[in-house]
């Protein structure tokens, strides 16, 4: 196959992906606008996807906060600005690492689970069965997962921010003898309520990315068990790339040069 042919094939595949994803988003929005929501399923998904991810998110955030504090405290103490460590840890956690790392962890755990579950339903004809019964797989499967993630990811991000700051504060005190009052004072000066809201807005967008990519990869599964494996891997890879890219764009738009 020639280079031109391969390029053409990839372009068509990309456009098909874009078209399919747009249709999925459109139908999901239509279901939400018409309030076609399965509340019990949404609650169940929120519990399974959100609460199930809490421990891993807390652990990741705790160690991240600790390592930021360790690195910044070392430098700050050397230059006599140890009182700024609280600001550095909080600023980084709330605006960038909190939302992004939580999203990456959830993409790995939940995005893959969504793709695998829906992909298995495709290969065992359960999705065809839903359509055959006149039920929309989008309303039945995608909307509850989208809503569950849209509620739970910002909540998880709040917990991630708090535990990251607490971990940072602990290391700052233990390693650089920066007292907690000084740490908190610095944190309050560095970060405002607006920063927290913008961080949570990021989390909301990341939730949509994880839900839509996971569901789309699952729904477009082809080729049995191997296909489910491919869908799962693709869901994680695509979600993470999109999360990083979107994080940059959103940071630029929300925080600009500030």
């Amino acid at each position: 196959m020639g280079i031109l042919e391969r390029f053409g094939e990839r372009t068509i595949a990309f456009l098909e992906y874009l078209g399919g994803m747009t249709a999925l988003i459109g139908e999901s929005v239509r279901s939400l606008v018409h309030a076609q929501i399965r509340y019990a399923e949404t609650f169940l998904q929120a519990y399974e996807l959100g609460i199930g991810s809490l421990l891993i998110v807390l652990l990741t955030s705790l160690f991240t906060g600790m390592v930021i504090s360790l690195e910044s405290a070392q430098q700050a103490v050397q230059f006599g600005i140890g009182s700024l460590v609280g600001g550095a840890v909080t600023y980084t956690s709330v605006r960038e690492l909190g939302p992004m790392l939580t999203a990456v962890v959830v993409a790995g755990r939940v995005g893959s689970a969504i793709a695998a579950e829906i992909g298995s339903m495709v290969v065992t004809e359960q999705i065809d069965a839903l359509r055959s019964m006149g039920l929309s797989p989008v309303r039945f499967l995608v909307v509850p997962r989208l809503l569950a993630l849209a509620i739970m990811l910002p909540l998880l991000t709040v917990f991630a921010d708090i535990i990251s700051i607490l971990g940072g504060m602990w290391i700052a005190q233990a390693y650089a003898h920066i007292n907690p009052a000084s740490f908190i004072s610095s944190a309050r000066q560095a970060v405002g309520f607006e920063d927290v809201v913008k961080g949570l807005l990021k989390a909301l967008i990341f939730a949509c990315i994880i839900a839509f990519v996971g569901c789309y990869q699952g729904l477009s599964t082809r080729g049995g068990a191997a296909g489910v494996g491919r869908a799962t891997t693709s869901a994680v890879v695509i979600s993470i790339i999109l999360i990083f890219g979107t994080n940059f764009v959103m940071s630029y738009l929300l925080f600009g040069g500030h």
């Binding site: 339903m121 359960q126 065809d128 019964m133």
Partner: peptide, 15 residues
């Protein structure tokens, strides 16, 4: 589809 129903080869019941 309310008028038609398909019984799948492997039942395709929701797990």
């Amino acid at each position: 589809r309310q008028k038609t129903s398909l019984a799948f080869q492997f039942a395709a019941l929701l797990d």
